[in-house]
């Protein structure tokens, strides 16, 4: 579907822009989540076929010609779980960084800067 592809690209670019331009660590993590969602939309819309239904072969589906591609759906399911784990880990780092410096501004952390 062209519309969801456009939406996915917009979300990816928006998320990356947020990650590059924001100074607050929490906002950077939010940018990552937006980008993640955009990628999921993009992958899903690649597997979509018009006028077809979800790949669940119950009584409503008679032939193989009625379902969409199950592989992108499976990929996105995996990606959502990984995204959840990564987001939780990043938020934990944010908590720890705040405990150390008392600030969430990325420009206050200069130790690894060169």
């Amino acid at each position: 579907m062209l519309l969801t592809i456009i939406l996915g690209i917009i979300l990816i670019v928006l998320g990356l822009w947020g990650m590059l331009s924001q100074k607050n660590i929490i906002k950077i993590i939010i940018g990552f989540s937006i980008m993640d969602t955009g990628i999921h939309l993009l992958i899903l819309s690649i597997g979509y076929i018009k006028d077809r239904t979800a790949p669940i072969m119950n009584q409503a589906v008679q032939s193989a010609g009625q379902v969409i591609d199950p592989v992108p759906s499976a990929l996105v399911l995996t990606a959502i779980v990984i995204g959840l784990a990564i987001t939780a880990l990043m938020l934990t780092y944010a908590v720890k960084l705040y405990e150390i410096k008392g600030s969430l501004e990325i420009s206050d952390f200069k130790e690894l800067k060169w």
Partner: peptide
């Protein structure tokens, strides 16, 4: 270009999945 057909791998999963694996939900 909107897809009209399943890819080759997906075609195999959809055709043979119910008999080979026995699950309704192909995902």
């Amino acid at each position: 270009a909107p897809f009209a057909e399943l890819s080759r791998v997906a075609e195999k999963y959809v055709q043979k999945g119910p008999a080979e694996v026995g699950g309704q939900n192909l995902v």
